[in-house]
């Protein structure tokens, strides 16, 4: 898709060269208001994405998260056609479909099929909306691939206003959400309102997705929500530590991605997604190597009793 990238290239085509002194480079970047905005919004989005990503991975909702963003694409392009800010269309479509997916529940076997069918239809709608929109195509490409280098201080305020309540709600839901993610039956028997929680979680996820779209766009949402958490659950088995690791990784990917993009002619989204993918790859390979090394060791551990 060369046309899309051409548009994105325009945003960052004046690439200064780095001094390789981190402090000087940081000072240079923060001279530009758009970079300050990018770091501010990116930081909030990364924190929200990292925290919610842990629950997405624990609940096996990665596909639902992915679908939400794509369904949101139709909402965003629809809003553009109507002359409204795409954020509102994005929000309406993701929260609405999130609540419906949540109501379908985690246990229903055909859930992913249903999501896929709705997803395909809404993407079709999105294409229609793009064709109806006669104006400049940048808007649509920004929704698809993110436009963090082009956001205003008003956008930053919106991201913060949406991000802080998202984190507060997640803190409130933390334990019951973890409980029902591990096992819904058990949580229900202990009095956890699992269906309400499922709907609430998808609504919060929809909010987080809408925010993350500002940074990486709907097509690349996995990089910030799913990948850091998928790495974190391989590194630690403690829920609180996994949330912290996922958040830390999302922050690192965003900050480093922004910094590289500032000094290069290529788009931010590419660097963020590549950092995420590369780290995931290293984590998987490291794990396989560690397991192989373990299997090479002589069986010095006594066989476990009473196991099958």
């Amino acid at each position: 898709m060369p046309a899309e990238f051409a548009v994105l290239l325009k945003v960052t085509n004046t690439a200064p060269s780095p001094s390789w002194n981190p402090l000087d480079d940081l000072a240079l970047m923060t001279q530009y208001e758009f970079m300050v905005h990018a770091f501010q919004a990116g930081t909030v989005v990364a924190i929200v994405a990292g925290v919610i990503g842990y629950f997405v991975v624990m609940r096996g909702s990665a596909f639902a998260a992915h679908a939400l963003s794509h369904i949101g694409f139709a909402g965003a392009t629809g809003a553009v056609v109507l002359g409204v800010s795409p954020v509102f269309g994005l929000l309406a479509f993701t929260v609405g479909s999130g609540a419906i997916i949540g109501a379908l529940g985690n246990r229903i076997r055909g859930r992913d099929v249903t999501i896929g069918i709705v997803l395909a239809w809404t993407l079709g709608l999105g294409v229609l909306f793009i064709s109806l929109y006669t104006g400049y195509a940048t808007e649509a490409y920004a929704i698809l691939f993110g436009e963090i280098l082009g956001i205003s201080d008003r956008d930053v305020a919106i991201v913060v206003l949406a991000g802080v309540p998202t984190l507060l709600v997640l803190a409130l839901l933390y334990r019951p959400l973890l409980f029902s993610s591990v096992d819904e039956n058990l949580a229900a028997a202990r009095g956890v309102p699992v269906t309400g929680l499922s709907i609430g979680f998808m609504a919060v996820l929809a909010l987080a997705v809408t925010e993350a779209v500002q940074v990486v766009g709907v097509l690349l949402i996995f990089a910030l929500i799913v990948t850091p958490a998928a790495i974190a659950v391989r590194w630690t088995r403690r829920p609180s530590a996994a949330v912290a690791v996922a958040t830390g990784l999302a922050l690192l990917f965003t900050w480093i991605g922004l910094s590289i993009a500032f000094f290069s002619p290529h788009p931010v989204s590419f660097f963020i997604t590549s950092l995420a993918f590369g780290t995931y790859l290293v984590a998987r390979i490291g794990e396989t190597v560690a397991r192989y090394m373990q299997s090479l060791r002589p069986a010095d551990v006594a066989p476990r009793a009473s196991t099958s």
């Binding site: 803190a171 334990r175 019951p176």
Partner: peptide, 12 residues
């Protein structure tokens, strides 16, 4: 630990 207080709201 979830069996102990997993049904409670808020952070542990």
């Amino acid at each position: 630990a979830l069996g102990l207080d997993g049904h409670r709201w808020g952070l542990p």
